[in-house]
């Protein structure tokens, strides 16, 4: 199956800067296919492993990325004739799509096919196992060391317990300091509160006027006191 093979090559050939960051929705977008230059292959095993690459990021990806897609693909290839159930997402694989894809040899026809390959479907993508970014917990903590020595893996996203089925994160509760009942939604953008109308007596008014005047004066002085402005305006 050439399409799958090229699928793998893609990882190696895409320059680093064009690679999407790891973990961002793996293959939501339509997968674009190009026919392999060497023609259809007889055996798939040979090419399932990606070519060794010198790039550090490729090495990293080859470690963290599971080889699920390739093995699943190999399986599909093997029992092509039987009505297949995808191993990853346990949904039936649409035969016609694959057949169509197998025969695609030009970019043009490919663009016209409306149905996507099964591997590109969201259902399949969601079910794929993929590793998570490592935990942010400080690795030097004594408590972590003890748990790890007892066989707990920080990055496995598992809890404690006989089957490591426990909760992963402590319970979070935000303090409640009001009397709002359950289910009351506080609208986020409340209209700003109206300020109380202040009552002013004569003394306050005088004071405010004075302050206003002083500020005005200062501004004017700053502006007109500027030597460059003065030069520009000329004396007088």
């Amino acid at each position: 199956m050439t399409s799958n093979e090229s699928d793998h090559d893609e990882y190696d050939d895409v320059p680093l800067q064009h690679k999407r960051p790891f973990g961002s929705g793996l293959k939501r977008k339509r997968v674009v296919f190009v026919p392999a230059s060497s023609g259809p292959l007889n055996s798939t095993e040979e090419n399932t492993t990606p070519k060794p690459s010198k790039s550090v990021s490729d090495l990293y990806l080859s470690i963290v990325l599971p080889k699920e897609t390739s093995t699943a693909a190999a399986k599909e290839q093997a029992d092509k004739d039987a009505p297949k159930i995808c191993e990853v997402c346990s949904l039936p694989v649409n035969e016609n799509e694959n057949a169509k894809l197998g025969t695609i040899d030009t970019g043009k026809t490919e663009e016209k096919t409306t149905s996507r390959p099964h591997e590109a479907s969201i259902a399949h993508q969601v079910c794929m196992t993929h590793s998570h970014p490592p935990s942010a917990v400080d690795r030097s903590r004594m408590g972590l060391g003890v748990l790890q020595s007892q066989g707990w893996d920080l990055d496995s996203r598992r809890g404690l317990g006989a089957l490591e089925q426990g909760m992963q994160h402590p319970i979070k509760v935000t303090p409640k300091n009001d009397n709002l009942g359950i289910g009351v939604k506080v609208p986020k953008n409340l209209p700003p509160k109206k300020e109380k109308v202040q009552k002013l007596d004569a003394k306050k008014v005088r004071k405010m006027a004075e302050e206003d005047k002083r500020r005005h004066e200062r501004l004017r002085h700053q502006f007109y006191g500027n030597s460059e402005v003065e030069k520009y305006l000329g004396p007088g």
């Binding site: 408590g143 007892q150 066989g151 404690l160 426990g166 909760m167």
Partner: peptide, 26 residues
């Protein structure tokens, strides 16, 4: 109880809570 990780509690606590307890005792 030696193995705190696999101690068969009905609802095991969060690992972070356990780590904190170990550190406090340390």
């Amino acid at each position: 109880v030696e193995d705190l990780v696999h101690f068969d509690l009905m609802d095991p606590p969060a690992p972070e809570t356990m780590m904190r307890a170990l550190e406090e005792l340390n």
